[in-house]
Each structure stands twice: as structure tokens, then as C-alpha cells.
């Protein structure tokens, strides 16, 4: 129940944030998608012992947060929410790998290094995905998909799913509320009730699908989805993409923190 309300409010928050009008929001959705993909690829391409080299990549989310005027706390909370899943997988590393390495004179287990590396990568990648949608929104994201030649029908179907998640989660939580009023103190549904409970909602879903189809059909839908005009890429968009990609690639090839550090420690 609470996870349902949570998910819904998170989705709605992201949806709201995506309607802001900042320089980042105005970048072409396709460019933002591609930039995100380059970012993810580069971050993920680091080997499993890398920690220091990953740090410069935090510039990307921080700059997006700042320029797009996004609230840090609620988004951070969303990211932390997903972290346990990764910790679940990552935590196995220290259990299985006990070999030690010397780090700054201290011996530490490689397993922990891997774990930390996964944790950082996960935080960065999850943040990047969420920032993409928080600065783009589902409609404009759909435009990016269209430009990638994803079939329109599939795009329409994604949009419909997105739209009706709100409606259905509300419907489901109304029903759960009614259920738990009559079955106080129960954690989750009783197993035997689940089938008919979900089944009821499913039948209503079918009926709704039918009505939605009629509504679409009455407005001339015949299986083709016509989108509005798609905005063209501007020079600014391309520059944005090039600048970030350049930064990512440089940060991938050169270990910037070590460079900075060696300059620094050397000077002193």
C-alpha cells in the first residue's frame, strides 16, 4: 500500500519536474537520451576495481541538478530506495573474494573494493536515468524514441501504459483500502483473496481497455499513431552532446583525480 503511494508520488514528482523550463529541459530529448546512454556506457565500462577514476563522473549529475533546478533531497531518496537491490548483489563480493590489496599502505579486501565500485556505478547510473526523465518527461521521451525509429504503435502503447499507471494505482489502492478496512491488522492481502482481488481489477481493466479503445476509435484512430511535428536538432543540442561526450571520454581515458592528486601532492 505505502509502496504504491510512494511510487505514484515519485512518478508524479518526476512528471512535474520535467515540465520546468530550464536550459537543460530545452535540450532536445534525443540528445539527452544519447548523452545519458554515452554516460552510462562509459561509467559501466570501468573495470570492477575502479573507484577513483569514477569520481569525475559525479560532475554530470551535479551539473544537471544545478542547471535544471531539481530538488536534491527527494531524488536522492528515490535513488537510495533502489540501492538495497544492488547492495544485495554487491555484498556477495566481499564474501567470495578475500584476497587483499594494498591501498595507501593499508591492506583491504578486493571484495570490498569491488563492492564499493559497484555501489558507485549503481548510484551514478540510477541517478542518470532518473535525471533523464526528470528533465525530459515521458512525452518528450517518446519523441526521442520516435526519432530512433521505434515503431509509433509501440511508442503509443508505452504512453498509454504510462498514462494508465496513475489511474490503475489509484483504483487498486482504493480497493486495498476497502479491503483492509474489513480486514484490519493484516499485512498484505490474504493469499486466498489475492486471486479474486487482482482478478476483479483485471476484469475492470479489460472493460476500461474496451472503453479507451472506443474513445480512440471515435476520434479517428485506425491503428496508426500520428504525432505532432518533431523538433529538429539545433547547433546548441549538438554542442551539448559533443561537450559531454568529450568530457566522459577524457575522464575515461585519463584518471583525472590521480592526475590532479599527483600534481597537488607533488607541488606540496
Amino acid at each position: 500500500m505505502s509502496n504504491m503511494i510512494n511510487s505514484l508520488s515519485n512518478m508524479r514528482l518526476l512528471d512535474d519536474l520535467a515540465r520546468k523550463e530550464t536550459f537543460i529541459h530545452r535540450i532536445h530529448p534525443l540528445i539527452k537520451l544519447l548523452t545519458t546512454v554515452v554516460y552510462l556506457t562509459v561509467v559501466v565500462s570501468f573495470e570492477r576495481y575502479e573507484i577513483i577514476g569514477l569520481l569525475p563522473f559525479i560532475f554530470y549529475p551535479i551539473l544537471i541538478f544545478a542547471f535544471a533546478e531539481l530538488p536534491v533531497a527527494p531524488i536522492l531518496k528515490m535513488i537510495l530506495l533502489i540501492e538495497p537491490f544492488i547492495i544485495g548483489i554487491g555484498i556477495l563480493n566481499p564474501l567470495f573474494d578475500h584476497s587483499k590489496v594494498l591501498f595507501g599502505g593499508i591492506a583491504i579486501s578486493k571484495g570490498w573494493v569491488t563492492f564499493l565500485s559497484i555501489l558507485i556505478k549503481c548510484s551514478l547510473t540510477v541517478t542518470a536515468s532518473i535525471l533523464l526523465i526528470a528533465t525530459t518527461g515521458m512525452d518528450r521521451f517518446a519523441v526521442a524514441l520516435r526519432m530512433l525509429k521505434i515503431p509509433k504503435i509501440f511508442v503509443l502503447q508505452i504512453l498509454l501504459t504510462y498514462r494508465y499507471i496513475s489511474v490503475l494505482i489509484e483504483e487498486v489502492s482504493r480497493m486495498i483500502r476497502a479491503y483492509s478496512l474489513r480486514a484490519p491488522g493484516q499485512k498484505g492481502l490474504k493469499w486466498s483473496a489475492w486471486g479474486s482481488f487482482a482478478g476483479q481489477i483485471l476484469l475492470r481493466t479489460f472493460e476500461r481497455a474496451e472503453r479507451v479503445y472506443q474513445a480512440m476509435n471515435l476520434r479517428g484512430f485506425t491503428g496508426e499513431y500520428y504525432t505532432g511535428d518533431i523538433a529538429k536538432l539545433s547547433f546548441k543540442d549538438l554542442a551539448y552532446f559533443a561537450a559531454w561526450s568529450l568530457f566522459f571520454i577524457i575522464a575515461r581515458i585519463y584518471n583525472i583525480p590521480v592526475l590532479i592528486g599527483s600534481l597537488f601532492t607533488g607541488v606540496i
Binding site: N3, M4, S7, I153, L156, Q157, I158, L159, L160, T161, Y162, R163, Y164, I165, V167, L168, I169, E171, V172, I176, Q186, K187, G188, L189, K190, W191, A193, W194, F197, A198, I201, L202, T205, F206, R208, A209, E210, V212, Y213, M216, N217, F221, T222, G223
Partner: peptide, 29 residues
């Protein structure tokens, strides 16, 4: 799907996707 030529399926898929999304959150003991 397009060969099937059943445009009814698109809203059904859309709404069913939302259903599964919501149903994934109905926990049972």
C-alpha cells in the same frame, strides 16, 4: 501484431501494462 490488424490490441496492451505495474505492488502474505 500489425499483420493481425487488430488495433483494439493497442489500448488493451497499454492498459494491461498499467495493470501489471499496479498489480506488482499488491503484496499478499
Amino acid at each position: 501484431l500489425q499483420n493481425e490488424l487488430d488495433e483494439k490490441k493497442i489500448p488493451l496492451m497499454g492498459v494491461m501494462g498499467a495493470f501489471v505495474f499496479a498489480a506488482q505492488m499488491i503484496n499478499f502474505s
